[in-house]
Every structure is written in structure tokens, then in C-alpha cells.
């Protein structure tokens, strides 16, 4: 019986800038179903943090409730984590971010946790542009309660039960673009080559970054008539282009043909280099992104890759004008300046 992963690792594991191997970013052994797409996304998050040489204790993993929200236990075992209330991860993440703005916030949520019970919270965390990466492990069903259709299940898609879903679906990427998110992407759990650079760019982006990852539920929703099965997504996936994440220190040496390749510098000086599949797509235009998503939808395709990017959106701290020092580093006198200061503030409103 094995619920324990062996402790032996490959003797020649690569080492990152911090001197850590990937093993330093592992978590506990997954208890999800064998073949669950979520485990691949966990592995992609792990790999991204390793490649970015992020110190594990500088990361906070935030989640709600659901299969997806269990996954933070399965990666970055040396990081902070908060497994919060169903659909309420954005509030908890907001509070944590306000208290300590220096951490990397990785929110992990599912389609139920985001698009059903958490829809209200999701909408507002996008509007506030909280500096976080919000990963939706989107399998189109409620896997933890035996696979009922979720709010992201496409109309007509049928899970293991076999009955086509009669309702129209919520497209989280379109919603996020509409609500003002600065970084919006869609990916597939079975395509790490696309997913890993997306996560790395999302971590480097300041402000709210959404990655909606189609993640097949092998147990309940990997059927022939499901639009979120491994086979369906592989056959109908169409990427906006390929994508390189260029960390700050790396000198740019390769030259690309103009028009097809676009480079966007992020707030921290790193860059994303896009090799677009079509010239018509303009990543900095919300209208172009929406058009492109809808165009593919009409053809029955799933558009993946980076959809929209605006690195210049002000995040929550900027909007609120908070101190640049994390609150947990301020001393008592600064945090609680006393009744005289309070009186002065109150007076200013009179």
C-alpha cells in the first residue's frame, strides 16, 4: 500500500538560483482520483515556482472548497496556505494581501468555487484588481459531489450521467476581461508547455491575473459527449500563439519577424514574448480578445493561451493608497497611532 511517496529523487536533479531542486517545492501526496487534471496543474505551479526561484516561504496558497481547493496541500509544502470557506477565497486573499503585500499570492479555485457559490466574490476581486494569481481548475462539474454539471459546463455537454446540460455556461475569461482584469489566459492541464510559462508570467504580473485551466475530471466528466474531456479539448484546442516568459536578467538575443511576434514588458521588468497565431489578435485590446474568444466558440473550439494583457492596471494597494511597507512589518505606534490621530482624522471629515 502506498500513500507515501518514496523519498529518493533523481540523483542529477536541476538546481535553481536559490540552490533548491524541484523536491524543495513538493507537497504531500495527492489524494485526488488517478488521472485528475488538477494534479498536472499542481505540478505546473510547482515547476513554475522552481523555475522562477521563488523562496517557498514567500508564497501564500489560498483556496476555497472543492477538489481544486484541496490541491494546495499537494504542492509547495514549505509555503503558507489558507484553505478558506466555499467561494470566499477572494475575501481571505484580499485580507492577507492587505496585511502582507510582499508575498506571492496564488489562489486556487474550481469552477464551482468560482462561478457558482463564489461568483460574487470573484467579480469583486477582479474589480479591485488584487495582486494575485487566480487559477481556476475548471472541469465543468462538481467532482466532489459526484459530478453534477457546474456553471462552466457548456450547453449540450454531457457528463457520465449522460444528460446534456440545458443551461448556458459562464465564460470566466470573458467575465474577467469585462470586469477589468489585467492578465487573462486560458490553458489546458494536459499542456504544460503552455501552462508553465503562463503561470510564470502571471506571477510576475502586478495586479489580478486569471488563468482558467480546463482540467478534465477523469471520474465524472471524461466522456465522449463532454466538452471538457481529454480527447475533446485536445481535438478542439486552438492557441492564440506560443509564448515565452523572459525573466529580467536574460538578454534578448533572438529576432523575430515583426507583426507575428509581440513583446510586452511587465511591471517587474520581465517580459512576455508572444508568437501570435494570427495577426488579427491584439493582446492589449479587450474587444479584440472578446472577439477572438467568441469567434472560436462559434466554431466549437477552445481558444487557449494568453488572451488579454495590460501590465499597467493599478492594483488594490495603489487604488487604496496603502503604505508600501507590509502591515506586519509596521510597529505598534504606526499601526495604532492613538486616539489623537483618530480624532484628527474624524475632524477632517467634519
Amino acid at each position: 500500500m502506498s500513500f507515501i511517496r518514496p523519498n529518493i529523487r533523481h540523483p542529477q536533479l536541476a538546481v535553481n538560483d536559490l540552490g533548491y531542486t524541484r523536491a524543495n517545492y513538493e507537497g504531500a501526496l495527492s489524494t485526488l482520483c488517478a488521472g485528475c487534471g488538477h494534479d498536472s496543474i499542481s505540478a505546473a505551479i510547482l515547476q513554475s515556482c522552481f523555475e522562477l526561484s521563488i523562496e517557498p516561504h514567500k508564497v501564500a496558497k489560498m483556496s476555497g472548497i472543492g477538489c481544486s481547493s484541496k490541491t494546495p496541500a499537494y504542492f509547495l509544502g514549505n509555503s503558507h496556505g489558507f484553505n478558506s470557506v466555499h467561494g470566499r477565497m477572494p475575501s481571505v486573499a484580499t485580507g492577507a494581501n492587505l496585511a502582507n503585500r510582499d508575498l506571492v499570492y496564488i489562489g486556487v479555485s474550481g469552477d464551482g468555487d468560482t462561478a457558482s457559490i463564489g461568483m460574487g466574490q470573484f467579480a469583486h476581486v477582479v474589480r479591485r484588481n488584487l495582486n494575485m494569481v487566480y487559477i481556476v481548475m475548471n472541469n465543468g462539474c462538481y467532482g466532489l459531489t459526484k459530478g453534477q454539471d457546474s456553471a462552466t459546463a457548456d450547453r449540450g455537454s454531457a457528463s457520465k450521467k449522460g444528460i446534456p446540460n440545458p443551461y448556458s455556461s459562464i465564460d470566466l475569461c470573458e467575465t474577467a476581461i469585462q470586469l477589468g482584469a489585467g492578465f487573462v489566459a486560458r490553458s489546458f492541464s494536459g499542456d504544460k508547455e503552455q501552462l508553465i510559462p503562463l503561470i510564470k508570467a502571471a506571477v510576475s504580473h502586478r495586479g489580478f491575473a486569471l488563468i482558467d485551466v480546463v482540467s478534465p475530471c477523469v471520474t465524472f466528466n471524461n466522456t465522449a459527449n463532454s466538452t471538457k474531456s481529454y480527447d475533446h479539448v485536445r481535438e478542439h484546442m486552438n492557441a492564440t500563439g506560443t509564448f515565452d516568459f523572459v525573466p529580467l536578467k536574460e538578454e534578448i538575443t533572438t529576432e523575430y519577424e515583426p507583426g507575428q511576434t509581440e513583446e510586452i514588458t511587465l511591471h517587474d521588468g520581465s517580459a512576455v514574448r508572444l508568437h501570435k497565431a494570427t495577426e488579427s489578435l491584439d493582446f492589449s485590446s479587450r474587444r479584440s480578445a472578446m472577439n477572438e474568444i467568441e469567434k472560436h466558440k462559434e466554431k466549437g473550439e477552445v481558444l487557449t493561451g494568453l488572451l488579454y494583457l495590460n501590465p499597467q492596471t493599478p492594483d488594490t494597494h495603489e487604488l487604496l493608497g496603502t503604505t508600501t511597507t507590509p502591515l506586519n512589518q509596521l510597529d505598534k505606534d504606526k499601526l495604532c497611532p492613538g486616539s489623537k490621530t483618530l480624532d484628527a482624522i474624524n475632524d477632517s471629515f467634519r
Binding site: 511517496r5 518514496p6 523519498n7 529518493i8 529523487r9 533523481h10 536533479l13 501526496l29 495527492s30 488517478a34 488521472g35 485528475c36 487534471g37 494534479d39 498536472s40 499542481s42 505540478a43 492541464s189 494536459g190 504544460k192 478534465p216 477523469v218 471524461n222 481529454y230 480527447d231 485536445r234
Partner: peptide, 15 residues
């Protein structure tokens, strides 16, 4: 094989 990557992700020695 449905190429779900589960084996790749779990393998402790990256085989």
C-alpha cells in the same frame, strides 16, 4: 493511455 500526465507528475525520480 489518455496522456493525462498523471504518471509524469507522480514519478519520484522523473523517469
Amino acid at each position: 493511455c489518455i496522456e493525462c500526465d498523471a504518471c509524469v507528475d507522480i514519478c519520484p525520480t522523473d523517469c
